[in-house]
């Protein structure tokens, strides 16, 4: 469940999820361990440094997104949704990868995105005003989600809209 959350969160932030791997090797399986490590190192080598593989955002953009994502994953809302997924799994007694994928994708990731987008908006706008499309590109989320996060911040009085671009209030 945690692994699935990490994979989907990485994808969400513009990182190839193949950069993360979870494998099992018992204490007696040294040859298998060597095989796993060698295989993983080679696959990461093939991907190249962070931010250069196909479809990945540049390194500083990833850094900004990860800053917000770590904070978002710390937020009570996302922790609660993780707990709810665990509860849901126990209730249905269906621990298949497909079910986990569906529950995480349906509950945790939307909550995580919401928290991350609003956090990243605050830091991005602290550096100066910006238009919606620029913000959405940098944050790496659909414009609808960024728009609704912006609307929520405007409602709270933290952000103001001026001539099509957004600035921090006050």
């Amino acid at each position: 469940m945690v692994a699935e959350t990490a994979r989907q969160a990485l994808e969400e932030c513009g990182i190839n999820p193949e950069r993360f791997s979870l494998e099992w090797a018992s204490a007696a399986e040294a040859p298998r361990f060597v095989e796993l490590v060698t295989g993983f190192v080679n696959s990461v080598k093939a991907l190249g440094p962070l931010g250069t593989a196909e479809g990945e955002a540049s390194r500083d953009v990833i850094g900004e997104r990860m800053d917000a994502a770590v904070e978002a994953l710390n937020s009570p809302k996302v922790r609660t949704s993780l707990g709810n997924v665990a509860k849901g799994l126990k209730k249905t007694n269906d621990y298949s990868p497909e079910n986990i994928k569906e529950l995480v994708g349906g509950k945790v990731i939307p909550a995580l995105r919401k928290e991350r987008v609003s956090r990243q908006l605050m830091t991005a706008l602290a550096k100066g005003g910006a238009a919606l499309s620029d913000l959405a590109g940098r944050i790496g989320a659909p414009e609808d989600d960024v728009q609704s996060a912006l609307d929520a911040l405007v409602k709270k009085g933290k952000v103001e809209e001026k001539a099509g671009s957004y600035i921090l209030a006050g």
């Binding site: 945690v2 990490a6 950069r19 791997s21 494998e23 990461v44 962070l50």
Partner: peptide
Amino acid sequence: CTGRIDGRFLLEAFKVGADGVFTGG
């Protein structure tokens, strides 16, 4: 224990510039 690992650790690793994270249980 592998169960100690939290999603935050994994994201934090990428945040500080790891090119990959290998978790072995």
